[in-house]
Amino acid sequence: MDSIIHLETSSISKAFGKTRALDNVSLKLKPGILHGLIGPSGAGKTTLMRCLMGLMSPQEGEVKYFTDNERRPFSKLRDYIAYMPQTQSLYADLSIKEHLEFFKEMYQIPSDEYEKRKKNLLEVTRLAQFEDRLAGQLSGGMYKKLGLMCSLLRNPKVLLLDEPTNGVDPISRREFWELLYDLKKSKVTILVATAYMDEAERCSFVHVLESGQLKNSGEPLHLLEKYQVSNFDEIFLKGSNNVI
């Protein structure tokens, strides 16, 4: 499939009891670019990600999926959307190689294609020499890279990453972002949720989420100008009154 996929949410809301995790969020993910979803903890980033991945259904509004501007049901496009959850979701007692083999079967990737992708992924993540190491014994950065590899194995058109660099040292974080830049070249639509405000500036397009509401969307520099601040931390530090 060579067509471009893009996603939209039209005023979706999701509440857990009295907490409104998502409140009337309308967001457009333009295809082929690197999007950032920024907001402090508890802003609703994970819930939004789960709604986009079809793991949760919003109580109001809907998530729409398009290929070449034509609306398609989620089930048709599911195989082209990959997701990397925020929680440690790999099997601590399985090695890197065993993870890749497991997900190869989950995604039903043909063997020759798998070998090619695996070789390429191990190379770019520089994890080839750790192939037999158990996930539980990997460093934070390596663990995240393995998670990314598992989602990239299916060669997705859309990649949803929930706080992929959370708790990772600065060097590994930079490496991780370099991996994402490489992906951008192959026209993959990427959405990265992050609580690290400095990472927002690395994205081509930023969506600001706070208390379940989408406060703003735009190019990073454009947003900074709009808020008249020098970096993204200040947007939230200035208090939510300013985030309008």
């Binding site: 991945m53 599911r78 959850p85 979701s89 790999l90 989950m106 995604y107």
Partner: peptide, 13 residues
């Protein structure tokens, strides 16, 4: 509990 179900459910299994 370990969170692996979230990743598993995002696959076509």
């Amino acid at each position: 509990e370990k969170g692996s179900m979230e990743l598993l459910l995002s696959t076509p299994v």
